[in-house]
Computed example of a mutant assay.
Amino acid sequence: MRLFGLLGYPVGHSASPAMMNAAFQADGEAAVYVPFAVDPEHIREAFTGLAALGAVGVNVTVPHKVAAFDWTDVHTPEAQRIGAVNTIRFSTEGAIGHNTDVSGWWRSIEQQVTGTSPSFAVIGAGGAAMAILAAIATHRKDSVVRVIARREAAVAQLQERFEASLSIEYRPWEKRHEVVSESDVIVQTTPIGMWPNTADSPIEDPSVFQKGMVVQDIVYRPRETRFAKVAKAGGAKVVDGAGMLVYQGVDAYEWWLDHAAPVDVMFQAVNAHLQQEQLDHE
């Protein structure tokens, strides 16, 4: 039985174990995917212990992605580009750090993004925003990208990281309605609206949105956030955040096992997990 897992703090809410174990079963893989809640003080020992146990690979979620980058011996170009690791493969040559958040986000939205240089508004300037900017730099590098954040310093760090590949403009939080109304693709990357604070949204006015816009909230708990409902009421095309979760898992699965993942099975498992979670909260 080959061991895979997820390291985070906390991890009890994650749909990844249900998704990955369903994929292993569908493919007839003798493997198990286990969630590990690891305090940040002990994350390096956890990585070392899993390597010693013969684990094949793990996913890494908040708050450990930078620590995973620092711990791993070798980095793929995707991980190197954003300085964070969300997927590790243990090998005889050492631990290899990869990042599937970049490709996972792009695969979740690419069918909706038309044109070679649409204008993007990214709400938030944290780690998720960094992965999204890396994807835009790869696939739509000539686009106008405005990052809406409370702290200009956080956006300045993003501008410095991507200065050679993407033009990023800072916009203050107070201007978010104006910036969103002028954008083609809007991606909400903050935790605003996540359970249990489901009544919250960074935008409350549906008139900010209009037909032709593509709007995504990468929060997927709840499946339809307040932000998504407001955007839909304004006529925008709304893409939920579950697709990013699934596709980053698909890419990790294929990177570990070197064969195609059962994508439909993984979507079904995530849908079932989130539906049950919603029932549990009602």
Rank of each mutant, 00 (worst) to 15 (best):
Q111T: 14
S117I: 05
V230C: 10
A121G: 00
F120D: 09
R140Q: 06
Q157G: 11
A52N: 00
L245C: 05
H42W: 13
T100F: 14
D27W: 10
A51H: 14
S91H: 03
A51C: 15
V185M: 03
A129N: 07
G49M: 09
A153F: 04
P172A: 08
G83A: 13
W106K: 00
V66E: 07
Q157S: 12
G94P: 02
N21Y: 10
I96F: 13
I136A: 02
P202V: 14
W105Y: 14
T116Y: 13
R161Y: 09
V144S: 11
T198H: 00
G212R: 06
A134H: 04
L166F: 02
R176C: 05
V214E: 02
A242V: 12
Q248V: 11
W71F: 15
T138A: 15
V270E: 06
G249F: 07
L166G: 02
A31L: 07
R221K: 13
V263D: 12
N271E: 14
A26C: 06
P172N: 05
V66C: 07
F162Y: 09
V180N: 10
G83K: 06
D39V: 08
D70E: 14
I192F: 09
A15P: 04
D184W: 01
F69K: 10
V74M: 07
L133T: 09
A22T: 03
R171S: 15
V85N: 01
D205C: 04
F4K: 09
A154C: 01
R81Y: 11
P196W: 04
P118H: 12
F162P: 01
V144P: 13
V11M: 07
R81S: 15
Q210W: 08
R161T: 04
V122A: 06
S207Q: 10
T87V: 14
T225M: 00
D280V: 07
G57S: 08
I132V: 08
K65I: 11
Q276N: 15
T72H: 05
A26T: 01
M213W: 02
I88W: 12
V85E: 00
R89E: 11
P206N: 08
A153N: 08
K141A: 15
G234R: 01
P202H: 01
V208R: 05
G241T: 06
I82Y: 02
